[in-house]
Write a protein that binds this DNA or RNA. Sequence first.
DNA 1: CTGAAAGCGCTTACAG
DNA 2: CTGAAAGCGCTTACAG
Lengths: 340, 340
Amino acid sequence: MKTRITLKELAKLLNVSVSTVSKALNDSPEISPKTIERVKELAALHKYRPNPTAVNLKSSKSGTIGVLIPNIANSFFAKVLSGMEERAQREGLQLITYISNESHEREKQIAEMLTAGFVDGVLIAIAEETQRKKEFDHIKNIIQYDIPVVLYDRIDFDMPVDKVGINDRKVFYDATKDLQKKGLSKIGIATSIHHMGVGKARIEGYREALGDNHTFYLANSAKKESLKEKILKMLLEDKVEAVLGSDFDSTMLTYRLAYENNIRIPEDLKIIGFVRGGMAKYLTPSLSYVDQSPHKIGETAMEVLINRINRKNTGPKERITIATEVVHYESTQFPEKKLL
Amino acid sequence: MKTRITLKELAKLLNVSVSTVSKALNDSPEISPKTIERVKELAALHKYRPNPTAVNLKSSKSGTIGVLIPNIANSFFAKVLSGMEERAQREGLQLITYISNESHEREKQIAEMLTAGFVDGVLIAIAEETQRKKEFDHIKNIIQYDIPVVLYDRIDFDMPVDKVGINDRKVFYDATKDLQKKGLSKIGIATSIHHMGVGKARIEGYREALGDNHTFYLANSAKKESLKEKILKMLLEDKVEAVLGSDFDSTMLTYRLAYENNIRIPEDLKIIGFVRGGMAKYLTPSLSYVDQSPHKIGETAMEVLINRINRKNTGPKERITIATEVVHYESTQFPEKKLL
DNA sequence: CTGAAAGCGCTTACAG
DNA sequence: CTGAAAGCGCTTACAG
């Protein structure tokens, strides 16, 4: 077994003091160039690397960022994480990941851990259950310990922290307007996240676009069976011409139910949903989707956090919006316009 | 700003020594019950929590596990991670995630970090590029520092470590035999990971099941365009009756190309693929898939690692196989058998 | 230019 | 039963 060599051992081998070795390795101007060279040479030979724990204790920094993820199986969050990791890596920061599984209890436990001093900063997407209960004390507690916090994706809360996410209202506002412009009027929404901030905002955008004197079609339920019924009603009774899917499950359920009931996409029904592009293009027919740029969200959230940790940004808390785009595939294809 | 209270401050408030406080908090039999009570009371009042960095320095443990993930956007790995996290949490271990993005260079950097003493153990799925180059020195280097290593998922390498994964050979062996039993003989494989260990094993299983005197149909390419051509040839010229998809992209590409060429699934073509169940059931038609139990793989790998770290298991290195199952949906539906 | 000393926040063998 | 001391591996203000 190899062990990493310590400063002390290095000092003994060189017949100098530990302080000298430490300073030499850190290019202190106090140390003569020759000594610096000697020290660095031997250090390289033995592949010396400072013990990170000791450095952390001294500096009272951990070089570590805590990332709270509600649901990693959701590929949106997986991609956000990869954006964070990429940015963190350039800064030499480690990422400690915690998965709340949308549980309030677990999130509280994690928040408690985070105040213990493991991390220099925290990136959080709030769990579904926490949003429903509207209990954010555990998050505020982290802030009170002066640990920088950035909220990502799920940001519609009143909290004194930086926030990075998309403009959920605008996504469905624009999508609805666009469908109207193309001549559709019976437009519905399917959603299983209507009780969450982002889900509400999406519905609002849709409502706002349609205006007050319009009929709204809303299939909303967090329970699969009940959601299924409501979607079926919307498709078969209300006979909507288009559905906006607010999340993966509601989108795909609509897509599948149309198929089972011989409703042709896009001839009889247009669909736009929140699914990932890597999958949407393979579907039969391919599915138009909202590109949320998850990687960019992760990168940006990390960037904002780093600037807080370094005190490069000491201004008021910000809310940063990442641009989105609807990628149109077959499920929103309109027939060619005919010349008169 | 709150700061966490330290042992020293607690000691001062109680008019006892730091050692006494420390021992009291750790329920040392050296300390009188009354003192223990007094100390614990004040500690609770101030929400004392030992500084993890200091404890780590003392114990030369980090309470931290490094997880190397090749590609987090692949939901298989996301689920594996959640299994690891769940198991780690029960042990009070933190997870530091590193994403190699299938890059050999990045993987080497990460391996170098890991030897610095950040982590007590490491879980690794080897990057694609590393497998192609067959350069594993950086992994062996970690082992030499006596840091326990467990390989997960991508385990077909000759390395003296514990390994947790599925039996890739058997998956496609069984699937092929099963399709044959149901009367199909022209069975093909689509794969974009044929140069990787798991990809090779899947092909071998298929070949073995068919036997030497059979025609093999193999559409293999890591490049999308070329893979597409080969699949098209297999579907249109060879007119295979079933395709086994060895990974997400090759499976979905086959599925989509069948659609574009009016090949009906399952009437004209059966498909079984490596995709995730959460998506497979929504497809039109739904897609039969190999359930790899990613969560279980993650849990098990973590379990094995923990036992090595605690020295509960000091026996020879193991190779653990997680059971898989083909979940049959519409894409492998056979017509009802008619009674004669 | 070099080194002894103090200290980061803990734990623990040892003395009293 | 309590406390002083040493030490984990580093950094840095200070003395020489």
